[in-house]
Design a protein around this nucleic acid. Structure first.
Lengths: 331, 331
DNA sequence: GTGAAAGCGCTAACAT
DNA sequence: ATGTTAGCGCTTTCAC
């Protein structure tokens, strides 16, 4: 691959001049600019992002990190897609780090990202109290969090109103006449699990529906735990007549278990999921769900990050997007 | 962030020696090694992958590129997960490029990857005849293709026996008694679409089932085209009694349309999809599908790539994995 | 066994 | 308006 000095030699100028036309700064005579442009074209020259990144912290290296807990989760895929969209538009490449809810792996990835000299990071951290990430923020790395924030730390966050979303889901169930409403929660270390539980309780409270503790089950946010916990609920002597599933994967797991038992939705049991999927309408019956605008979360996060890279001092914002209940046929 | 020279100074040695202990090459007295290790720990030194990458083509920069057509497609998500798994195990970071079936975007991403100095690339190219990618291969970039190869080019490829997979799916339909079997194809520029169509035709031929051209529809591999084309088929004066869907997204689209019309599966129409999803059992009825071992495709591709990076001269291989028909309840 | 120094491709400060 | 040069952090000869 041709380098800047190749271009310079071919155009009969110094590399500094080449750099100038490349970055459009400094004055360059039109005639030499044309000469250089020609040389660039002829040599098919492409600047090395690596060299640029190494050279100086002061200039953008056009590289962003994305740290997500579980790429199997369609929610994160959509967030990722949103991020990618704005990153690409702004000429940033993306390093993808999927830590699979594994703290150790998250730590290692964070180190790698640092070592890669990324300009900024979008993360859904394992905990609100992620020391390493907090440290990186303090040291000045531009970070924006999605889905969950960082305690006592000044970062941009973009998320959804989990309490309200959950509240709407459960309220909808209550108004439809269900009374024994179960909640399958994801990992209780994740704030959103707790917030959704709060929404669940608030809705029950508001309508005076008693909250039976056996109807609240906590798992690990994954597909398998949806199957497992849904099974436990169904095995109860007095099983629930409706289910509020804490996330995507749990919903899918619960659905699998319900179908396996040959139960009819919503006759035998109703279900509403937190997180919509673009193919929720393909389910049978089509799923009622709380839709987080995942793509927009990603896009917003990307935009905030780029803003922060360009203006590291700007005050941090928390952007709360609205979650909307999509009524289909499962309730 | 501490650099090598910080470590060297602290340990009272030269950076060359530090480099030696870091890379475990050259002789270093045990006592100085310990000294250096101590300094590294104290300074929390982390080598810069950027500098390493810039420095020399001869040594691995620990960076891989992944180029995929559509991250919305669960198949690619699973492939990606497999790749990520082995990349991580081997200390490679991943640059993710989702080109969304857009040729222009693919080209730009390829340029970016080159400019990032990646050590290797895993790609599902837009066409078998991707000039730019072919050129990069010829110039010596280690590449492995997944899902589709590169014409007249010597690359590693890992994919699935599409003809056989499709054949099994359609044969299964025929043996179950269906006769008007439709095929909704993805983009006809993608080899797998054509191969699956071939499997479809071969199965019909083998059992002497006439092949009605109106039952073969070609779309763009996306969700929306599944909805659209399935609708067209259902509107036929003599509609199909079974459907073979060319990929994941098409299946989901078709399902949506079928449910929308209140049709019963498999009574009114049977469906078998190409590509299984981990939540296919959550569908109602659980979906019969041809399962590509997507995670394994990704892992294999990752392994092949790393092998090739370490041994650029080794002869290229084509690895064809088996696709398996999973019989559930939709047929 | 260890150090000095060149150089990867680039930017930016300083000269001219 | 253009050139020279000093690094960025590292690997790798080549000396000693």
């Amino acid at each position: 691959m041709a380098s800047m000095s190749d271009v310079a030699r071919r155009a009969g100028v110094s590399i500094a001049t080449v750099s100038r036309v490349l970055n459009n700064n400094g004055k360059v005579r039109e005639s030499t600019r044309i000469l250089i442009l020609k040389a660039i074209k002829e040599l098919k020259y492409q600047p090395s992002r690596v060299a640029k990144r190494l050279r100086s912290k002061s200039v953008s290296g056009n590289l962003l990190g994305v740290l997500i807990p579980d790429i199997k989760n369609p929610f994160y895929v959509e967030v990722l897609e949103g991020i990618e969209e704005v990153a690409y538009r702004n000429n940033y490449a993306l390093i993808m780090c999927n830590f699979g809810q594994d703290d150790q792996k998250e730590r290692l990835y964070l180190e790698i990202l640092q070592s890669e000299g990324i300009d900024g990071l979008i993360a859904a951290p394992a905990h609100e109290n992620d020391l390493q990430l907090k440290k990186m923020v303090k040291e000045g790395l531009p970070v924006v969090c999605v889905d969950r924030g960082l305690k006592d730390t000044d970062v941009d966050v973009v998320l959804v109103d989990n309490v309200r979303g959950a509240f709407q889901a459960v309220e909808h169930l209550i108004l439809a006449g269900y009374r024994r409403i179960a909640y399958i929660s994801g990992l209780s270390t994740i704030p959103s699990s707790l917030l959704r539980e709060r929404g669940y309780r608030e809705a029950l409270a508001k309508y005076g529906v008693p909250c039976d503790p056996v109807l609240v089950r906590r798992g690990d946010s994954k597909h398998q735990s949806g199957i497992q916990l849904c099974g436990e609920l169904l095995d109860l002597p007095d099983p629930p007549d409706a289910l509020f599933a804490g996330n995507n994967l749990i919903t899918l797991g619960a659905l699998e278990e319900i179908h396996r038992r040959g139960l009819k939705i919503p006759k035998d049991i109703a279900i509403v999921g937190f997180d919509d999927m673009y193919w929720s309408s393909s389910l049978n019956p089509p799923l009622t769900a709380v839709r987080q605008p995942a793509g927009e979360i990603g896009r917003r996060a990307g935009e905030l990050l780029i803003q922060r890279i360009n203006d590291p001092k700007r005050t941090s914002v928390q952007m709360m997007l609205n979650a909307e209940l999509i009524r289909r046929k499962s309730t």
